[in-house]
């Protein structure tokens, strides 16, 4: 295969970022019914540079997904295929997290919550901020902050089982609210 880097392969980016933000606002209520009329804020534009699991792991440079194809990151020694709760929890354990069982804010500690369906397939991951709210990256859409874990529980993302799927680490401080972070 020849790799002539002088050839332009992708057209220039669209200039109207504001239009994309409007599209995101328009789509969110249809995608996450639970957010209708509740407390949440949208904090970034759509991007597929990272996904919810990458965001929760503190990595906004690449999406974490147990895929067999290039384009995603997955630790090479972990099972590929379906991201089941046990495998994703193991990812966080390696990063110093342990099960904690409740979603309350703990000073000096950071919590993550794993959303799963009834077959224990992971559908979403959220990370707690220093405000006590939670931050979620919604697929290829933007980041949102939501007041409670339950607000994002829905058919698409499943639900959090409080006894096993909330993990805590004291090795890492909670991030500040997204509005004060630079992206």
């Amino acid at each position: 295969m020849t790799t002539d880097t002088s050839r332009r392969l992708i057209p220039d980016p669209p200039s109207d970022v504001a239009a994309e933000q409007h599209a995101l606002l328009d789509q969110l209520p249809h995608l996450v019914d639970a957010l209708y009329g509740t407390d949440y804020t949208i904090e970034s534009c759509s991007t597929d540079d990272y996904n919810c699991l990458a965001w929760a792991m503190g990595d906004c440079s690449q999406p974490w997904s147990p895929s067999l194809q290039g384009g995603y990151y997955w630790p090479p020694d972990l099972v590929v295929g379906l991201p089941v709760v046990e495998v994703v929890a193991e990812l966080f354990r390696r990063d110093g997290y342990a099960e904690c069982g409740d979603s309350g804010l703990v000073a000096g500690a950071e919590k993550v919550a794993i959303y799963a369906d009834s077959f224990r397939e992971v559908r979403h991951v959220a990370r707690q901020l220093s405000s006590g709210w939670w931050a979620s990256k919604l697929g290829d859409l933007g980041d949102i902050e939501h007041a409670t874990l339950e607000l994002v529980e829905c058919g698409l993302y499943g639900r959090v089982a409080p006894d096993r799927e909330i993990l805590l680490t004291s090795d890492r401080e909670n991030s500040p609210p997204l509005t004060s972070m630079s992206r």
């Binding site: 895929s67 194809q69 295929g81 991201p83 697929g139 290829d140 859409l141 698409l156």
Partner: peptide, 10 residues
Amino acid sequence: ETRAESFAHR
């Protein structure tokens, strides 16, 4: 229908 999906396999 998949823009909000979290993972590639879904």
